[in-house]
Each structure stands twice: as C-alpha cells, then as structure tokens.
Design a protein around this nucleic acid. Structure first.
Ligand SMILES: [Mn+2]
Ligand SMILES: [Mn+2]
Ligand SMILES: [Mn+2]
Ligand SMILES: [Mn+2]
Lengths: 222, 222
DNA sequence: ATTACTTTTTAGGCAAGCCTAAATTTATTT
DNA sequence: AAATAAATTTAGGCTTGCCTAAAAAGTAAT
C-alpha cells in the first residue's frame, strides 16, 4: 500500500465514523456534509479510493470500507486518540482544546512514534472524551453497558463515561456546567414535550439538559 | 499572514539554511539541489513567495528572506529542533532516527503546542545534534567559541558540541565509532595530504577521520 | 567581441483536490 | 404511471506544486 494523502486518510476516517458499528452504507451527501465539501468532490474521491481498493463503491449506491480501508481508518483514529490523550495528560491541555491539533497530528507517518507515545502514556484504554483507543493491532474494546443519557432511566445512578468528542461547543457547555467524565448523574425528571431531562450531578446543583445534549453523553450504570 | 503550505514553509526553511549567518543570496539551483526538485519549479515558487513578501527576489539574481520570511523560517526551525529534542529526551529515539519525523512535526500549526512541549522539556537550549533552539521570540543563542574540528589545533583538548544534523550517514558513522556530543577529543596528527586527522577520543581508541567528517563536527576548547 | 557554456526563466502540461452548473438516476408524490 | 423532488454523477474549470523542453540571460573562454 502506497502512502495516502491527508485527504485520503480523512475520507477513510469519516467513512468509518459515519458507517458506525453496523457498517452501514455511507451516502455521498453524508460525507459531503461531514467533510464540508461539495458532493461532486466526494464522487471524485470515492472513485479514487475504490481504485485503490480502500472502499467498495457502486454508482448511486453509496460506499463502505474494505478490510484494508477499515484497518487504515482505525489506525488513524488510534493516532488521533493517543495524541489527544498525550495533549491532555502530559501537556495539560483541556479536553476541548485538543481535537483540532490531533486532526493534524493523526497524519504524522511513523508507526514507531505512535507506539512510543502509547507506551509513554502507559497504554491508555480511553481518550480524554471517553472514546476507546484501538490497540496496535486495531482491536477496539468498547465500554460495556454504555448507553446514551437520552436513553437512560430515571432513579438509576449513572457515571458519565464519554462525550461526542468533535463538538467543541458541547465540551465548553459541559465544562461551564461542571459536568465531566466520571461525574455521577441521576435523572430526576423526563419532560415528554421535548425529551429534555432534569438531572442532578452529584455534589452540584440540578440542571436541565436538552435532548441535543443528552444524546451526546455516554453513561454507564454505577 | 495567511497560513502557509508545507511546501512554502519548507522553501523558507531551506532558503534560511542555505543563506547562512551571512545572509548570502540564494541561487535557484542551490535550492533545486537541496529540495530535490527541478530549477523551473523553484522559479515558480520564488515568484509566489515574493508576491507574499516572504522573500526578496529578482530574476536571475537569486533570492533572500525578508524579515517576515526569516521570522517564519526560524519558527519552523524552532519547532523542528524542539520536536527532535522531545523524541530523543522523552521517547528515547536515537539521534539519527528523529530528523525525518521532525520534518513532518515541524509543520503542525499550533503555537500553544510547541510552547508547551518546550516547557515540558524545560526550555532546552540545544537539540540532540547540538544545534541551538530559537526561543519563542526567534532569538538564537549560538554556541560560543565553536569551530569546526577541521579547523581545530593540535594539542588542544576540545569537546564535541554539534554535528551536521541532516546527514544520517554521518550520525551512524559517529555512533559506530562511539563519538557523540560531549566527547573529549584531541588531535594527534594532521595529514596535509588529505587534511584528515588522527584523533584520540578520551577513554576510547585513536581513530583517523576524513576531512568530510571533521568539517561536520563542531568543537569547543575545554 | 564572439563563441561556448552554465544558470535561470518561460511555455506548456499533468495529477490532486476542490469548485459550479448541468445531466442523470433514484425516491417520493400525485 | 407520470410528475416532481432529492440525491448523485458528469463535464468542465481552477489552483497548487510539480514536470520537460525550449528560450533567454548571465558568465567564461577564446
Ligand atoms: Mn478528537
Ligand atoms: Mn477524542
Ligand atoms: Mn533535523
Ligand atoms: Mn537537529
């Protein structure tokens, strides 16, 4: 496999994320939206990635990663999350400051480098946003019992274990309201009208959270 | 100043290095050789860099950095040397393994990142090859009394303080012969025929060094 | 000063990665 | 089923950064 351009690597990574665990077919427009490019540009690149056997693609039918493409995507995600962990744990960046820098660092070409940083950090299992870090072999250990706060039950104590990492505004919002990974959270009330929740963060005041927010928070029963 | 491409940054850096402390005019061909591209490509880029006021350039007369261009070049060199120091000091890479990785890392866009790594390392003054690390303001403190081993005198004890960083073959050669930064070196004999030197490294055997080698080694009297 | 050689620039072209506008295919309504 | 709407692809173009071949300018030798 030849070296891939930053652009090609990004396409693979985003296809992986959009496809999700169920490996759904990825529509041209969903990629265009996520990459903030026009659909016609996506089509161009999909042809190229297919040519390189990194994706499966049929005109008008969407695309999906091949095994090769998926392995590469996972390695990029591994690099992204290890760098984020390094920035937060070692350089004292805040969790909302690291994503953009990691977007650049994830494209540094050196297996040895990322493995040494991994070791330097003590082989962390999760990044600062609670997302699992794939190991060198590409194996990902997902957090067990994790659900979205939006689907959680009342009167059960949960621990916050992850957030949608890419949303800077969300991270700032949570910081501002003293909500973070490890926070203990209890749903006091679910408002059917807009699916918002009144919750109690242990040791803090109660707060109302919109569905937009709760659907981005991963929790696990304690 | 808009963000520069990797390519533009590299041109500035190499112009800086070729021009040297004397800020000599840089010929098109010398850049072409160093960047391993064709002279015509160089001409193209010089026009663009001049347009952006990063270099002074007149047809057939060579080019030189403007203050703006020099500042940017120095910041890239700062990043390169800080990353090399990080790789060697913190991740235990060897001094001959870090240059290529630093060539990539030097283009990461984040003032905050490089300043934090600088702090993390304790604001090192020199990189693993003995080259001075410019500070945040772009000030470079050169090693005093430093001369090339090729110009050093007999019967004076010197300490090795730097090597030409980019030559991988040189670094391997020195490693192989147990010569490194900090080694104490004494010239036993200078052979006029080829300007080679017979030297004694303290605590090691004597060895003959070609002028090619000695001209790449920076030393300081002890 | 003319010739020969070297260096540099110009002209024209190519791949990557994007764009707009138009055409085509697929999906949804009537 | 036909009409309409939405999604996707094609066609043609642009910029960046490179290339080769040819022209022009500068330099050195006769
Ligand atoms: Mn991220
Ligand atoms: Mn993350
Ligand atoms: Mn280097
Ligand atoms: Mn160095």
């Amino acid at each position: 496999m030849n070296i891939l351009s930053h652009s090609e690597e990004n396409y693979l990574k985003h296809i992986y994320h959009i496809a999700g665990k169920e490996r759904n077919k990825v529509a041209t427009n969903s990629l265009a939206e996520r990459l903030e490019t026009k659909a016609s540009s996506i089509t161009d690149m999909l042809k190229k990635l297919k040519e390189k056997e990194l994706i499966e693609y049929e005109k008008y039918k969407g695309c999906g990663l091949t095994d090769l493409g998926e392995n590469i995507a996972i390695q990029i995600i591994r690099k992204h999350r290890i760098w984020e962990t390094f920035l937060v744990n070692e350089l004292n960046f805040k969790w909302d400051e690291v994503h953009d820098i990691a977007e650049q660092l994830e494209h540094i070409q050196s297996q040895e480098l990322i493995d040494r940083i991994d070791a330097f950090l003590g082989f962390p299992k999760f990044d600062p946003h609670g997302d699992p870090i794939p190991n060198k072999q590409g194996k990902i250990e997902y957090r067990e019992l994790k659900i979205n706060l939006s689907e959680a039950k009342e009167d059960v104590n949960y621990e916050i274990v992850s957030v949608n990492e890419d949303s800077l505004a969300l991270l700032r919002y949570l910081d501002d309201n003293k909500i973070g990974l490890g926070s203990e959270i209890l749903i006091l009330e679910r408002y059917d009208f807009d699916n918002s929740l009144k919750v109690k963060i242990k040791g803090k005041k109660t707060i109302n959270l919109s569905e937009k927010v709760t659907s981005c928070i991963g929790v696990r029963p304690m």
